[in-house]
Amino acid sequence: MKLSFTKMQGCANDYLYLDCRTSGVPEKIVPLAQKLSARHFSVGADGIICICAPRTPGADGTMRIFNADGSEAQMCGNGIRCVAEWLHVHDPACAEKSVLKIDTQSGLKTLTRMGEELWQVEMGVYSAMAADLPAVNMGEGPLVRCPLEVDGKPWNVTCISVGNPHCVTLVDDVDSLKLEAIGPAFECHPNFPERINTEFVEVVDATHLKMRVWERGSGETWACGTGTCATVAALVEQGLCPVGEDVHVALRGGELTIRVLPGKQLLMTGAATTVYEGIAEV
């Protein structure tokens, strides 16, 4: 069987996008995501994102995300910008709009087109409470500057939910970290029963950060939109980044701009780029 897809990337966070608005999510999406995501052996990607019919009246579509290991994620900040760009290009009704609304597993998100292949996402409200992640054995929260032992080493972490769970920790030199050695132990730490995404952050100054991320289900990726939002939220909670100002976060795949608004609302701005259209034999 031949499967048509669009490969897109936001800050090098690359997924295969399937038009599922009429057909629905493929029945065997888990093995399909595992097979097609394998780098060097197949198309290669961080996973598959299915663009489905909207669930909410007035919405323009629904995003469902399947990681490279086949697990389903609630939200992907880089992915949702690419979904908006895909709809803008492929759906004539969406092409006429400057604002799109997209359903996700963590609620309805609003996106505004800021320029050519550039979108701003209203990411919603973040939380540092344990029940929202979820997290256990760490108190009720806010989980700010909490001690966490990982593989026998003490870390200081701040835990943030932005519709999916994140663990943020500060480091002196983010480029020198061997994430493949430490990331899995964070991801599968028993304090996080649904596993966790982990961000390792170097502070350049109050409005400029460097970050690397270990994503649950995907390993190290070159960018993570929700993780970038969680990072800035965590540093705002610690008094290291300002409220109401743009914070620029340098990732391996590019830069995202995050702003925390009063009331813990998050805005994310970044690019969404089409790499190519393809057909895979599955």
Rank of each mutant, 00 (worst) to 15 (best):
E140C: 08
I65M: 12
C20V: 11
L111H: 06
M138Y: 07
E281W: 14
G24H: 12
I279D: 14
D103I: 08
G77I: 11
G225Q: 11
E96K: 15
A95W: 01
G24R: 08
T231M: 01
T257Q: 13
Q9P: 05
L235W: 09
L108V: 10
P31M: 06
D246R: 07
S37E: 09
C52P: 01
G124F: 04
P193Q: 04
D46K: 06
C229E: 02
C159Q: 04
I65P: 02
D151S: 15
A33Y: 03
D205C: 08
L108A: 05
H166C: 10
G239F: 06
R145N: 15
L235N: 01
L32F: 08
D151C: 13
V168S: 06
S218Q: 14
W222C: 14
L179R: 08
P154M: 06
G219Y: 10
H189A: 03
V125C: 12
G44P: 01
D246N: 15
N197M: 08
E237N: 12
A84W: 00
I182M: 13
A95C: 12
K101F: 11
A73Q: 09
A59H: 11
E180Q: 14
C241P: 00
L170C: 04
V249N: 02
V232G: 03
I102W: 00
T231D: 00
H248G: 02
P262Y: 08
L36E: 02
V136I: 14
I102N: 00
L32A: 11
G152R: 10
C50Y: 07
A45E: 00
K28C: 13
V249H: 04
Y17N: 01
M63D: 01
K210T: 02
L235H: 07
G70M: 04
K101C: 00
I182E: 01
D175T: 15
K264F: 11
M114I: 11
H189N: 10
D172K: 13
